[in-house]
């Protein structure tokens, strides 16, 4: 069993290193959507993945990318299952993930804490281009379900904000 666990850890590292299809600077591990890797038999692996949003179409690309990565590593039989509970939250994005998002031009989500209360949309969000906190909301919905569209009033650039969930 010890070797199995070591194998699972190794496979987990490989699956977790797959890049997000929409934000290809972020790994699935950093995004916090990996829920587990289990060796269920010889050459057979089951990966659990949770979607950011219930209807996120990227989950299918993620699944096939994970399958490909593990195939290339010599696992012939890979199945990816989607789990909804416990629900993913933007708090599941790692510190490194947040840093990469900002570098990529997407303002990272603000920490939410445990309570699921109203979303404080009026707190300052930093412009990923010039660093100003003087930004305004253009639309709560943007290029993908997980982002809102904002504009920096200092440098005038529009930018995406990974909105809190």
């Amino acid at each position: 069993m010890v070797t199995m666990t070591a194998l699972e850890e190794e496979l987990s590292r490989i699956a977790g290193a797959v890049l997000d299809p929409e934000m290809p600077v972020l790994t699935l591990e950093e995004l916090g959507v990996m829920r587990g890797v289990h060796v269920t038999g010889p050459g057979r692996v089951e990966v659990s993945l949770t979607p950011t949003y219930t209807g996120c179409p990227a989950i299918e690309a993620m699944s096939s990318d994970i399958e490909r990565a593990l195939h290339e590593h010599g696992v012939p039989d890979v199945s990816v299952v989607t789990v909804l509970a416990p629900a993913w939250s933007t708090d599941d994005i790692s510190e490194e993930g947040r840093r990469k998002l900002a570098e990529f031009g997407i303002a990272p989500p603000r920490p939410q804490g445990p309570a699921g209360g109203p979303v404080p949309l009026t707190l300052a969000i930093r412009c990923p281009h010039c660093g100003s906190t003087d930004t305004e909301l253009l639309s709560r919905f943007s290029s993908t379900a997980c982002k809102a569209l904002r504009r920096c009033t200092a440098c005038r650039e529009p930018f995406d904000h990974f909105k809190e969930l």
């Binding site: 949003y53 209807g55 996120c56 179409p57 909804l84 253009l138 639309s139 919905f141 379900a145 569209l149």
Partner: peptide, 20 residues
């Protein structure tokens, strides 16, 4: 345009719920 994107995003959330 912003509303088109917003309504499509809401529709996508609902479609995800419907699939489950």
């Amino acid at each position: 345009l912003e509303e088109e994107v917003a309504l499509a995003n809401i529709a996508l959330d609902l479609l995800g719920q419907a699939r489950v």
